[in-house]
C-alpha cells in the first residue's frame, strides 16, 4: 500500500467541498490526521480515499439481436478504483445476445472483487 506522507483532496460528501489535507501521522488510529475539514465525515472521506478509494463502474456492453445496440451495466457496489480500467477492458469484449432483466447478473465477481456486474435496465 502506498502510504503517502501528505495529500490534499476536495471533500465530496456535501456541497461545501472542503479542501482537506491529510498528513501521515502514526500516532493517529487511522494513520492520518486531517486539516481543513469542517466535520467528521470529511476526515472519514479523506482517509478512505487515501487508503481504499472505490468507485462505481458504469458502462455499456454491446448487444446482438436485441432492441438496442448497447446494454447499460454497473457494478452492484463500488469497486476498488485500481480495478476500473481492467474491468472496463473486460466488459468491452463482451456481447449480450439474450433478453435481460434489470438487476440481472452479467458478470459475477468482477476480477475477484467480490462484486457482480448487473444490468442497469431490462432489454429484449
Amino acid at each position: 500500500m502506498n502510504l503517502t506522507a501528505e495529500r490534499s483532496l476536495i471533500c465530496i460528501i456535501c456541497p461545501k467541498g472542503c479542501r482537506i489535507t491529510a498528513v501521515r501521522d502514526a500516532t493517529h488510529p487511522l494513520g492520518y490526521r486531517t486539516i481543513g475539514n469542517i466535520c467528521q465525515r470529511g476526515e472519514e472521506y479523506a482517509i478512505d480515499e487515501i487508503i481504499h478509494p472505490v468507485r462505481m463502474l458504469t458502462t455499456t456492453i454491446a448487444t446482438r439481436n436485441l432492441r438496442l445496440p448497447r446494454l447499460p451495466v454497473r457494478t452492484r457496489e463500488p469497486i476498488p478504483k485500481h480495478l476500473l480500467s481492467d474491468g472496463l477492458a473486460l466488459l468491452a469484449g463482451l456481447e449480450i445476445d439474450h433478453p435481460v432483466q434489470m438487476g440481472e447478473i452479467i458478470i459475477p465477481d468482477l476480477l475477484g472483487s467480490g462484486v457482480d456486474v448487473i444490468a442497469s435496465r431490462s432489454l429484449d
Binding site: M56, T58, T60, P72, R74
Partner: peptide
C-alpha cells in the same frame, strides 16, 4: 448510465 440518481426518493444510488 452513471450512478447518483434516487438518493432522496429511494435512498439508493441508481443509474438513470
Amino acid at each position: 448510465i452513471h450512478n447518483g440518481f434516487g438518493l432522496f426518493v429511494f435512498r439508493e444510488e441508481l443509474t438513470g
